[in-house]
């Protein structure tokens, strides 16, 4: 039963991001392909979060945090209240925001109307998720900082004896940043074992295939050498993901490297490989061809999109 629900959520995420991309003439479409399954399993089956305490329709931007601004807020409320037994979920690749918003809608933490505010002036539903955007708990657009902040949260929670874990969603490109490795060394040194990283290993980055930009090699072996309990699984196999995400280690963090495809569920995108970071259209014909092909695969009625 559970299994079926996460599959439904994953399909819903792909459909929602696809429809949004068509309506807006572009979007982070391939991230929905690679990440929909990991997010569906996380939100549906793995994370222990309280019910959302944030408005179903996101509030407008409340101004930047400062001692003089009582109106600023973060998007953490969509992950429920802060309580010792609940998990926290830190989203590091902020450019996945559209996919995360879609996920929040599919699991009932945000209203579908929220997505209409995506990238609109004055909205908190920003294109690159900011800490005030739904589901975002910290400032993460500069990659690799999410893991370090999460490790600080986890260190504090472990020190207090909180039962809840800290989950971090990462993109594989973040393993090119030195800070990521500083953090793994520090987590091993302090035996920070209440962190679970889920990595979307889609082997893509802005310039194209990671192998053409910076080869990061055997990530599992590297992480194990840094004291993490690392495992690589099929990032579209929900049962395998569930099992891996529930791993625990006494000595340090758990890392689940979800090996994913940047066109999973949208085969047509293979034609655009390796330029998949942001899908936009150069002509109306191209858009229609992509729309019709993917709509058919996802079971979406084209007439209902526009």
């Amino acid at each position: 039963m559970k299994n079926q629900e996460s599959e439904v959520v994953a399909l819903g995420i792909r459909r929602r991001v696809f429809e949004h991309t068509i309506r807006n003439n572009g979007g982070y479409l391939s991230q929905a392909c690679s990440a929909a399954d990991t997010l569906a399993v996380l939100y549906e089956d793995v994370l222990n979060l309280g019910p959302s305490i944030a408005p179903a329709i996101p509030a407008p931007f409340g101004g930047v945090p400062s001692p003089d601004n009582p109106n600023s807020f973060t998007g953490a409320g969509y992950h429920g209240e802060f309580a010792p037994h609940y998990d926290r979920f830190i989203i590091s690749p902020a450019h996945y925001a559209l996919v995360f918003y879609a996920a929040l809608i599919e699991v009932g933490r945000m209203a579908p109307e929220g997505l209409k505010m995506f990238n609109k002036d004055g909205s908190s539903v920003e294109m690159i998720g900011a800490e005030h955007s739904p589901g975002m708990e910290v400032t993460n657009g500069s990659l690799a900082q999410g893991l370090s902040m999460a490790s600080g949260i986890a260190f504090a929670r472990k020190r207090r004896g909180d039962e809840g874990r800290v989950f971090v969603y990462m993109s594989d490109g973040e393993f090119e940043e030195g800070q990521t490795w500083e953090c793994f060394a520090n987590m091993a040194h302090h035996k920070i074992n209440n962190v679970t990283c889920v990595v979307d290993f889609n082997a893509q980055q802005c310039d194209g295939a990671m192998s053409a930009v910076t080869e990061i090699g055997d990530l599992v072996a590297k992480l194990k050498a840094f004291g993490a309990d690392a495992v690589m699984v099929d990032g579209h196999d929900h049962e395998a993901l569930r099992e891996a995400m529930n791993r625990r280690s006494e000595d340090g963090p758990v890392v689940v490297i979800a090996k994913t495809s940047p066109y999973e569920g949208m085969d047509y995108l293979q034609k655009r490989f390796p330029r998949l970071h942001y899908v936009r259209f150069t002509s109306e014909d191209e858009k229609i061809e992509l729309r019709d092909a993917i709509a058919e695969q996802l079971g979406v009625n084209v007439a209902e999109i526009e």
Partner: peptide
């Protein structure tokens, strides 16, 4: 925190959140 100031600054941000 070792010789790892980038991590230390972000780690401190996480501690302060808690």
């Amino acid at each position: 925190c070792g010789m790892a100031e980038q991590n230390m600054l972000s780690f401190a941000g996480g501690l302060a959140m808690e």
